[in-house]
Amino acid sequence: MQEEKKVNENRIEGRNVVLEAFRSGKTVDRLYVLDGCKDGPVQSIIREARKQDTMIQFVSKERLNQLSESGKHQGVIAVTASYHYSTVEDMLELAREKGEDPFLILLDNMEDPHNLGAIIRTANQAGAHGVIIPKRRAVGLTAVVARTSAGALHYTPVAKVTNLVKTMEELKEKGLWFVCADMDGTQMYDLNLKGPIGLVIGSEGEGVGRLVKENCDFTASIPMKGDIDSLNASVAAGILAYEIVRQRLKG
């Protein structure tokens, strides 16, 4: 029986279709597999997924049925990226081409596609050279992200890395320093945010993870006068990004 592709262009179903997606080099953000399935074709798909360090989730048949629109998932559903990912080196090269100090935005625990899309849009307008997200515990470049970015995804590089802390360490060796958003940090107006910089933003619920925060050079807080104690993650990213822009414009 012929396998069908889901109406959602970012989700494909069926063993042959999913296996070909991996073998063709298509970027697969997440793979859902029927828990306990030992069939040869499914095991081949799992091997291909591990080669690409794709996030694999073993789920029940009921969960797969919920995710499926074709009803012909055959025990596997893959979520693919709408856009190609860039590399961190692409971002550094973009900064070199522009003759600017690198300005990168790193996102930790960001699972809301609307926030990711809005941050990519802000990154573009603020002149950031790219956005970095981890492979795990992060939303990928879905159609929702693309729509929310209002076209910015066409122009702003996004890289997906295996280990955010390791990436930060490598960037530190290239001269970058890092500041993360934290309500207990130093007021952002009191920090020098010039030079090669990485701005680290966490999710609204969890914030920046402990290891990532420990690898930041500074923490920056946003002055708040209201009755609630946090801002939407994309709003916080915008405020801090434009403080970096303001300081760069001052020279």
Rank of each mutant, 00 (worst) to 15 (best):
V161T: 09
V208Y: 01
G71Y: 04
K172E: 15
K135C: 01
A241H: 00
V144T: 15
A220N: 08
H154Q: 13
V165S: 02
V200W: 03
L164Y: 00
S44D: 13
H114D: 10
A138H: 12
Y242D: 11
R136Y: 15
K213L: 15
D53Y: 14
L67Y: 11
N16T: 08
V88C: 02
A159L: 11
T80D: 02
E89W: 00
I77V: 08
P157Y: 03
S44C: 08
D229L: 08
T142D: 03
G202Y: 06
V179H: 01
V131I: 14
E214H: 06
T87Q: 07
N232Y: 07
G226P: 01
T162W: 01
Q187D: 11
D53V: 14
M91E: 04
G40K: 11
G99H: 04
Q2P: 08
A81E: 12
S203W: 12
E3G: 09
P113E: 02
S70L: 10
E97A: 13
A138I: 05
S149K: 02
V18S: 00
G251F: 05
K213V: 13
R121V: 06
I132G: 08
A181D: 10
G151V: 10
Q66L: 10
V235K: 00
P196M: 09
V76W: 02
A220H: 08
H154P: 02
A123I: 05
V88P: 06
S230P: 10
D39I: 06
A123S: 04
L106N: 07
N16R: 14
G175S: 09
L171Y: 01
K61G: 09
K26M: 05
E170K: 13
K174D: 07
V165W: 05
L92W: 02
A159D: 03
D35H: 04
I45A: 07
H73D: 03
L164T: 08
I201V: 10
M91I: 10
V131N: 07
R11D: 06
I12G: 02
L153S: 04
P113Y: 00
I105V: 10
F58M: 15
I105F: 07
A220S: 06
V161G: 05
D227K: 14
K213Q: 12
L176P: 04
R246A: 15
I46A: 00
A150W: 00
V79M: 12
T219C: 04
T80W: 02
V208D: 07
P223L: 10
T186K: 14
